[in-house]
Amino acid sequence: MRAATATLALILAALAGAASAAEPGLGESVYKRWCVHCHSSGRGNPGTESLRVKYKDSLPAVLLDRTDLSPQAIALFVRQGVLSMPPFRKTEITDAELAALADYMASKYVKP
């Protein structure tokens, strides 16, 4: 648990440092490069298929339709991975790209 706390703290710190400098459109392009193949709608999207089973009908299966995912939650999943989704390394998605990605994906986010 201490480990997870520290990880989250690191990710949040990285987000805070990098988000302001993000170039426009960066988040969307990172999403299209790394996430779109598994989290879109339609056939052949393993992320969407898995999340549909996980949440039944209580949450949308397509990530971009979610309103409950904060940038921080998204960043945590990207760096830790979950189930069959492995984490993404910094040579694949830099901290600055992650911040832009998380902002882009959380554009519908509604604070609880």
Partner: peptide
Amino acid sequence: AAAAAAAMPAASSLAAAAAAGAQAA
């Protein structure tokens, strides 16, 4: 996790977020 971000760097909400997060990721 959202609350943790809002309250950053309040350690207690970070811990709560991580505690819940640890079960999944």
